[in-house]
Design a protein around this nucleic acid. Structure first.
Lengths: 196, 196, 196, 196
DNA sequence: GATTAACCGAGACGGTACGTCACGTCTTTAA
DNA sequence: TTAAAGACGTGACGTACCGTCTCGGTTAATC
């Protein structure tokens, strides 16, 4: 019997592992069977969890997917390398990792496809996006401070200009963007924004 | 018992008006209630048709949506205007119509989101895409023949470079791309591809 | 031009062969695939006719089935043989033909099963029944006139008494009533109704 | 992830009240609207349950109806009363309850009508039948042991002889068999099977 | 022999019920 | 207290059959 109410760690406590197992199960199901076949029952079964546990942690399917996506879609840094072209190339190459596998592409496609319908998803997508865009804008800004980049270019547009083709290649053309695309992109943008 | 014709043209013909009513009902529902709320029953009811009639024409929801999308997503021409920048600007501005309303953006987002899962949708998307890309490539080719555009630029990459930001703005940033974006895009690309 | 509205009979006549083909197709389908699988489309196809032709002749499925049943369920005569037992035996043996095959049993079962729901069917069933019952009652009446049968027996009850077990064996026990059952039935009834 | 019990008794139990509500709803619908108008949606709605719940318990409409029928069609006892005629009369009168209302007659008619098509239904019908027949045979056997009934009568045939007219009156003639029919039946059978 | 009206096969159509499946909620038992 | 198991209401899916309706084309009675 010996009830021990004072004990802080009463009850279960295994929560973190379960959460991770569920998130990975979700990503597994996504890459194996595709977005359309993603079901909460399927994720629960693969995770060895119960559906109630899923709903205890996330309000609905979208929220779970969103957090799972966060495991894959990580912020990408943009270190100061002293040269605009080098920085941009470095940054864009770092982005390739997300798209070089079917799972990543499916994940991003799913987010984009569902976003116009789901406000939460939409917000999250926009937030992730802002981060990515911020890196690019920072690179441009440093370039402008250095004198590598003309002062009259619009940083937001340039950010859109480099992000667009990456996602377009990955999601619409459904092919992995590669170093070659990055290089051409860097060359074109560099030519366009260089002073004179 | 009469002679058995077995002819190809026997029996009542499918009503073209019904088909159109259904397709428009689908687009209506899409723009009013969003992709997630799209139901075959809903479309049938709005069209004044029966669900059986829908399934007589299309094997499933995706196929119907696909054809409905075809009504909105039309090929965009790229006439010869004698000048690279002018042609590109004209072409990109023509594309804006698709994205300047919620319905068009939702439609394209839905297609992109569902494509990685559905092979038919994927094919259709790719086909539409090829058409759009072909227009852009033709503009670049004419520019190269005129001498407006350097000969060493990769036409496919340029096509991706201009298509990407348009869709990115519309679908990911969820905002209508406007004449301003087009102008900046044209300026940047022109600067990048101009000889010397 | 010469419009002649007065003319009553002009135009093609309905084909008797088609009607028969349809009725036989219905019976075919019934014996092959059972009542539950009976569909108007199926009957039409087997008959090489069109559904419209079926509905031109019969208002609905029940009516068609009813007429088809009439081909199988024929009135059974009860000739005067000069002896009550002989007449009853003769009559009941004549009834066996309807039940000695799966089709007949299914048909009667279908009629009986559907009758409580469908008033028309119910009427038709009752009409057929009255005929059968009338034969039995006539046999009993002749027996009473001859002195073979007691005058105080209720003819209707005796009719029910002999009809009941036949149908019961066929439809409920789902077995063909045979000469043996008839003989036992005749013996029992004869014993029960004989004078003294 | 916790220990996986895999135990047989885990999870929410099926509500017995729900099951009963559904069965009664089915019988309600049957007696109110008839067999042909019986729909799973209708039953679900009347029971305040969902269609999914119906299909969780029964594989299809037939199986549900079958179990519902079991609530109405109960085994009928045949106690030893020391006298053949009295026992037979008692037993047959007990059977009247099933047929003295529209619902019971419709139910039995539906079972009989559908049985030739559906093997499960057929088995169930036969099983119920065997029970009823067994009671009658037991009555006859006791009669034979007492000397009330001749030893050379076939018990099975007598059982058919008394069951047949009851059902015939109820289902084919579509009228409630009453005490009068029972009395006449008893009188006739007694006369037929009495020694001498 | 030409006209013409009804017939015919094919099959589309609006309805309605079927049986399935996933969502998100809930209850039960065990740890 | 937290978990797995799984029942539950809801509502969409895609299928099947009913009885009705066009559509061309055929056939037989009347002119």
């Amino acid at each position: 019997m010996t009830k021990r109410p004072g004990s802080v760690l009463a009850g279960r406590r295994r929560g973190a592992e379960t959460t991770e197992a569920i998130l990975h199960a979700a990503l597994d199901e996504l890459s194996r069977r595709g977005y359309a076949a993603l079901t909460m029952d399927g994720i629960a079964e693969r995770a060895g969890a119960s559906k109630a546990t899923l709903y205890r942690r996330w309000a609905n399917k979208q929220e779970l997917l969103l957090e799972a996506a966060g495991l894959v879609i990580r912020p990408i840094d943009a270190p100061d390398l002293g040269d605009f072209s080098a920085e941009l190339r470095h940054h864009l190459r770092a982005r390739l990792a997300l798209y070089d596998n079917e799972r990543g592409r499916r994940l991003v496609a799913a987010l984009i496809g569902a976003a116009p319908t789901d406000p939460d998803l939409s917000d999250a997508l926009r937030h992730w996006l802002d981060g990515v865009s911020a890196s690019t804008r920072a690179i441009i800004e440093r370039g402008q401070q250095r004198g590598d980049v003309r002062l009259d270019v619009d940083r937001g547009t340039i950010a859109t200009l480099v992000s667009g083709p990456m996602i377009y290649r990955a999601i619409v053309e459904q092919d992995a963007p590669d170093a070659d695309l990055v290089d051409q992109l860097v060359a074109l943008v560099t030519a366009a924004v260089s002073p004179r």
